[in-house]
Amino acid sequence: KELVLVLYDYQEKSPREVTVKKGDILTLLNSTNKDWWKVEVDDRQGFIPAAYLKKL
């Protein structure tokens, strides 16, 4: 499984997104879309802008 580091706080703006904090380490589920990556946060799955994440 691939992990990503959150570079900036992000507040979800729709039900398909998730809220994260800078410094969080998340499981990356899908990065095929270059703009929005799907991650897992506390048993929730959702999207975050790829620019907010860095692969570890």
Rank of each mutant, 00 (worst) to 15 (best):
D35I: 14
D42K: 12
L56K: 03
S31F: 07
D9G: 06
N33V: 05
W36D: 02
T19F: 03
T32P: 04
R16S: 13
Y52N: 10
T19R: 05
L53F: 02
S14G: 13
V4L: 04
D9M: 03
I48Q: 00
S14A: 10
S14W: 07
K22M: 08
S31I: 06
Y10T: 01
N33L: 09
Y52K: 05
S31T: 10
Y52G: 08
E12D: 05
T32A: 15
V20F: 03
N30T: 10
E2G: 12
S31N: 09
L3C: 10
L7M: 09
K38T: 09
P15I: 10
K1N: 11
I48Y: 01
Y52I: 15
R16V: 12
W37H: 03
D43H: 14
K21M: 10
L56S: 04
K1L: 13
F47Y: 15
V20Y: 05
E40G: 09
D42H: 13
K22W: 04
Y52H: 12
K54P: 01
L53M: 05
G23L: 02
D43Y: 10
L29K: 06
K1Q: 14
P15M: 08
I25R: 05
E17L: 04
T27P: 15
W36R: 04
G46T: 07
D9R: 03
N30F: 06
I25V: 11
W36C: 08
R16I: 13
W36N: 03
L7C: 06
V4G: 05
P49T: 01
D9E: 05
N33Q: 10
T32C: 09
V39F: 01
A51V: 13
L56H: 06
E2H: 10
T19V: 03
L26M: 04
N33M: 09
W37M: 02
S14M: 08
L3Y: 14
Y8W: 12
S31Q: 09
P15R: 06
E12H: 07
K38E: 12
S31E: 12
E2S: 12
K1A: 13
D35L: 14
V41K: 15
D35M: 14
L56F: 09
L26K: 02
T19E: 02
K38S: 09
L3M: 11
L28N: 01
W36L: 05
D35C: 11
V39P: 00
L3F: 15
P49K: 04
E17R: 05
L28H: 01
Q11K: 15
T19W: 03
E2P: 11
T27E: 11
Q11Y: 15
K38G: 05
P49I: 02
L5S: 04
Y52Q: 04
N33W: 08
A50I: 05
Y8S: 11
G46M: 09
W37S: 02
V6C: 07
A51D: 11
E40M: 12
E17H: 05
R44H: 08
G23H: 05
G46L: 08
T19M: 04
I25C: 05
V41A: 11
K13Y: 05
V41S: 12
D35Y: 14
I25N: 02
E40F: 06
K55T: 08
D43K: 10
K34N: 12
W37D: 00
T27R: 15
Y10K: 01
W36T: 03
L28C: 09
Y10D: 01
L26V: 13
Y10G: 00
K13G: 08
Q45K: 11
G46A: 12
E40I: 11
K55E: 06
V18M: 13
L7R: 05
K13N: 10
G23N: 07
E2F: 11
D42A: 10
Y10I: 01
E12K: 12
K54I: 14
L26H: 10
K22F: 05
V39K: 00
E12W: 08
W37E: 01
L3G: 04
E2Q: 12
P15N: 11
S14D: 15
D42L: 14
L26T: 02
K55S: 06
A50E: 04
T32F: 10
T32M: 14
D24P: 00
L7H: 02
V20C: 08
L56Q: 06
K34G: 13
T32K: 13
V41T: 14
Q11P: 06
E2I: 14
T19S: 14
K54G: 06
L3K: 13
Q45I: 14
D24K: 07
D43G: 14
K54L: 14
N33G: 10
G46H: 07
S14Q: 08
V6F: 01
A51T: 14
D24S: 13
Q45A: 13
Y10A: 00
K13M: 11
K22D: 02
E40L: 13
L3W: 14
L28Q: 00
L5K: 07
L56C: 09
K34T: 11
V41I: 13
V39N: 00
